[in-house]
C-alpha cells in the first residue's frame, strides 16, 4: 500500500519529526516501499490466532513496595541540555 505525502507529513508530526519539504518525496517513496513489503501479511489467514506480544508465555514478576532510591539529581542533570533550580527547562508550555 502506498502512503501519500500528506500522510507522511501527518505521521511525522505525530512522531515529532520536522521533515523538510525537500525530503518529503524521498521519505514517501521509502515508506511506501516498506509498506508494500509489509502488505504480504494481509493475505495471511489469521482467523482465531491470538496476537503475540511477547516471545515467552510468562507472567509478570512484581516488586515489593520499598523505597530503594536516594537523590542523584546533580549527576542525572549533568547530562541535561538546560536546567535551573533543579528543574528541567523547556520553551513555555501553554495550557
Amino acid at each position: 500500500m502506498a502512503i501519500s505525502e500528506a500522510e507522511v507529513k501527518k505521521v511525522a508530526r505525530l512522531a515529532r519529526l520536522a521533515v523538510p519539504d525537500d525530503r518529503l518525496e524521498a521519505y514517501t517513496q521509502n515508506l511506501s516501499n516498506i509498506l508494500n513489503l509489509v502488505d504480504q501479511l494481509s493475505a495471511v489467514d489469521t482467523t482465531g490466532v491470538e496476537p503475540m506480544a511477547h516471545p515467552l508465555d510468562m507472567m509478570q514478576r512484581l516488586r515489593e513496595d520499598v523505597v530503594t532510591e536516594t537523590s542523584h539529581r546533580e549527576k542525572y542533570q549533568s547530562v541535561a541540555p538546560e536546567v535551573e533550580d533543579g528543574l528541567y527547562l523547556v520553551p513555555k508550555v501553554l495550557e
Partner: peptide, 15 residues
C-alpha cells in the same frame, strides 16, 4: 509537573 513560573520565558519541569 510543569511549573509555569518564568525562567526567562521558559517552563520548569519537576518529575
Amino acid at each position: 509537573k510543569s511549573l509555569h513560573e518564568d525562567f526567562q520565558g521558559q517552563t520548569g519541569i519537576d518529575l
